[in-house]
Design a protein around this nucleic acid. Structure first.
Lengths: 150, 150
DNA sequence: TTTAGAATTAGAATGATTCTAACTGCATTG
DNA sequence: CAATGCAGTTAGAATCATTCTAATTCTAAA
């Protein structure tokens, strides 16, 4: 056993650098970087499998297990968001701005919608006194403008 | 068992009666009735497996496949709601009043919260023109009053 | 360089849900 | 009332998403 475990706050050197966003703390390994970059350049809320697919051109050897692993770390660090809209696969999203999701029931697309004004759920719903809100997830289901036009 | 006369498209007779709620149209077979009643008397948003468990005392032979089948029909008919809050099992809910879900990240409980005033998402988020809203799902995650008190 | 711990991997395991094919029972038809 | 047909039901298989496991590789500190 190590007598002096003197790597407490782990110094950012080499690969052990950290993404300077939101004060998060993830080791930015090459794979995590790939996954994050793929997600950051996607607006369609890809699934883990979609992400593997897109990452493969740059990192042909990456496995689905690693994608899940990276997504988990990035999610925990608050760098990306996990989105559940339907049964089945989870979707991921790197839009860090406050937003909600619109899901088109016809074409299946998921569209981000950004707030135009402050929203406080406690003003609209009767939550028991003492409830502490950490985050809210609003999903709107319907028909997107494109599908509605047909 | 009540034998009975004709049925043009389908007349409520014997088992072939329909639940007179919301103008829905489901054949209310004994199993569907059991599933619905179990759900209607639950406030904890049970999973399919939970429901099977509770139904078993009354219908010992029912299978999980039948529970899923019933839930699917009841959901399609709008008699119950499917709730997705986390990865893993789906939850179901027979609260037909407009409401949202509060999910306690500490104890895992899901609590219904009812509206105190009208809520129009289009007032708060910038949806593309032409978007048609069918329904909105709001999930609030945090700590319930009980857990917060500790 | 050595070493401990973290990251990565393939493949196995798990868990939730859906599918399949056979069977049952009710209700309309003959 | 018997025959027929279809919806409902079933067990178990199949599928799909995700997590776990155990072995291996990599990184950074000592």
């Amino acid at each position: 056993m190590p007598p002096s475990p003197s790597r407490t706050p782990a110094k950012p050197t080499g690969l052990d650098c950290r993404l300077a966003v939101l004060g998060s703390d993830v080791r930015l390994t090459p794979h995590r970087r790939e996954v994050f970059e793929v997600l950051a350049s996607s607006t369609d809320h890809p699934t883990a499998y979609d992400i593997l697919d897109r990452v493969k051109s740059r990192s042909p050897g990456m496995s689905l297990a690693t994608v899940y692993n990276c997504l988990e770390h990035l999610t925990t660090a608050g760098l990306i968001k996990l989105v559940h809209l339907e049964r089945g696969q989870s979707r991921y999203c790197a839009n860090l701005h406050e937003h909600i999701h619109f899901h088109c029931e016809t074409c299946g697309k998921v569209i981000d919608a950004h707030p135009t004004t402050d929203f406080d759920p406690a003003k609209f719903w009767n939550l028991p006194a003492g409830t502490k809100i950490a985050r809210t997830d609003l999903a709107i289901h319907g028909t997107c403008s494109k599908c509605a036009a047909q």
